[in-house]
């Protein structure tokens, strides 16, 4: 039951991240979606991929998104 609840929460968070007007909040929601995917990887007994996913998403991808937002505007019209 916990496994299906995590997957539904990930889908709901990704759908909410599309609808937000503030782009910085949608970047945070994308980061938390991928963090839930990392927990799902750990529950399927693959610890190497879980560590790699958490480190890559938390470190490098968020930085690239924030730099891209900084060079354009923050609020979507």
């Amino acid at each position: 039951m916990f496994y299906e609840a995590l997957l539904i929460a990930a889908i709901v968070m990704a759908l909410v991240a599309i609808e937000m007007k503030d782009l910085l909040q949608s970047v945070i929601l994308l980061g938390s979606t991928n963090l839930i995917i990392a927990i799902v990887f750990f529950m399927l007994k693959a610890p190497d991929i879980a560590i790699t996913q958490a480190a890559v998403i938390g470190g490098v991808v968020t930085m690239i998104f924030v730099v891209a937002i900084k060079k354009t505007e923050r609020f979507e019209k």
């Binding site: 560590i51 480190a55 490098v60």
Partner: peptide, 14 residues
């Protein structure tokens, strides 16, 4: 332990 080369490089990059 689980880990290896690639996650270690990403963590150092962080």
């Amino acid at each position: 332990t689980p880990g290896g080369g690639f996650p270690a490089g990403v963590i150092l990059g962080t």
